[in-house]
């Protein structure tokens, strides 16, 4: 019985050790998985007649999620070279997945007419290697 009890204790200690190692390893493995499967999220606020931030930098070939939010009315969010063309609903959030395939400076405009300053509502997207 003593031997059996001691074996159980040793086994428990070993298991606890393995679990500790596991607890140390698993989060870092999860973290690695998230980094590759879940694109970075960039939040962009839209209101008459500006986007905030007004400039962002992305990496060529790296997917990102642009999380768009409007606080006053429906706005557009359009760039032909970046293959983006969506509306941003009023008081709601819209996610847009983007994977830039060309290096350069691009302009995103509001193409949903929003008033007499609409023509100047734009932001710059710089794509780097």
């Amino acid at each position: 019985m003593k031997t059996t009890t001691m074996s159980k204790i040793v086994t428990a200690i070993l298991l606890a050790g393995i679990c500790d190692v596991g607890l140390m390893l698993v989060p870092s493995m999860v973290g690695l998985t998230r980094a590759s499967d879940h694109p970075k999220v960039i939040e962009i606020a839209a209101k008459q007649f500006e986007f905030t931030p007004s400039q962002i930098t992305l990496k060529k070939g790296v997917p990102v999620i642009l999380r768009l939010h409007s606080s006053d009315r429906v706005h557009g969010f359009m760039s032909k070279p970046l293959k983006i063309d969506t509306d941003i609903p009023n008081n709601a959030t819209k996610d847009v997945n983007v994977t830039p395939d060309t290096v350069g400076d691009f302009v995103v405009i509001c193409d949903r007419y929003c008033g007499s300053g609409h023509g100047s509502m734009r932001m710059k997207v710089t794509v780097v290697e």
Binding site: S79, K80, I109, D111, R122
Partner: peptide
């Protein structure tokens, strides 16, 4: 036609 889309000079 796409004259200058980033200036909103186009029709989708």
């Amino acid at each position: 036609f796409d004259l200058k889309p980033e200036w909103e000079w186009f029709t989708s």
